[in-house]
């Protein structure tokens, strides 16, 4: 095993464990904290892919800003009897679990047994792919159209949030 592989697999294992704990742990605060751990592992994976900018932004935006919001919301909700979150097992959840496991096995089969990932040699230009300069250049040339469209998407989201969360109903006419 090379150094890269050791880093990769340790990040994968930790992030998988954290993702599982997000779902399993009963306390919402613990879930949120495990999610942060998961985000850090993902950021590490981005780093191994030479995507430094995305790794940093991922930590600042997701692990930083969004998770703080999450924790605030959990705090404000003031969940007292967290045991109520536990669901009874019924045939639906059994079926769901069975189907998910089946899907997992299928993915495992396709990814690992049937099409083993070929070793792709690292492209020389891939070193600069994650830099801020390259990203900025490509955002304003090749991906200008989707980039500008994202602004419309954000405006729609802002208006939507205002409409749904506004205090008073406005009577028309």
């Amino acid at each position: 095993m090379t150094f890269e592989e050791i880093v990769f697999w340790s990040l994968v294992l930790v992030s998988g464990f954290a993702a599982l704990m997000v779902v399993i742990s009963r306390s919402p605060i613990a879930s949120a904290l495990y999610l942060i751990l998961n985000f850090f592992c993902l950021a590490g994976l981005y780093l191994t892919l030479n995507a430094q900018f995305i790794a940093v932004v991922h930590i600042i935006v997701y692990a930083g800003a969004i998770m703080v919001l999450f924790l605030f919301v959990i705090m404000l909700l003031n969940l007292q009897d967290e045991t109520k979150l536990r669901e009874r097992m019924n045939w639906k959840s059994f079926a769901a679990i069975a189907l998910s496991i089946l899907f997992l096995i299928e993915l495992f089969y396709i990814f690992i047994i049937k099409t083993p990932t070929p070793k792709i040699p690292i492209h020389p230009s891939s070193k600069e792919i994650g830099t801020v300069e390259y990203l900025g250049k490509i955002l304003f040339t090749e991906f200008l159209f989707p980039f500008e469209l994202t602004s419309i998407l954000l405006i729609a989201a802002i208006i939507g949030a205002v409409v749904l969360a506004k205090k008073k109903f406005e009577l028309t006419d």
């Binding site: 991906f143 159209f145 989707p146 998407l153 989201a157 409409v163």
Partner: peptide, 16 residues
């Protein structure tokens, strides 16, 4: 990517 962003724009408006 364009199709995905278009779909998201439409969907977010529909959710609201």
């Amino acid at each position: 990517i364009s199709i995905f962003i278009g779909l998201e724009i439409m969907s977010i408006c529909f959710y609201v």
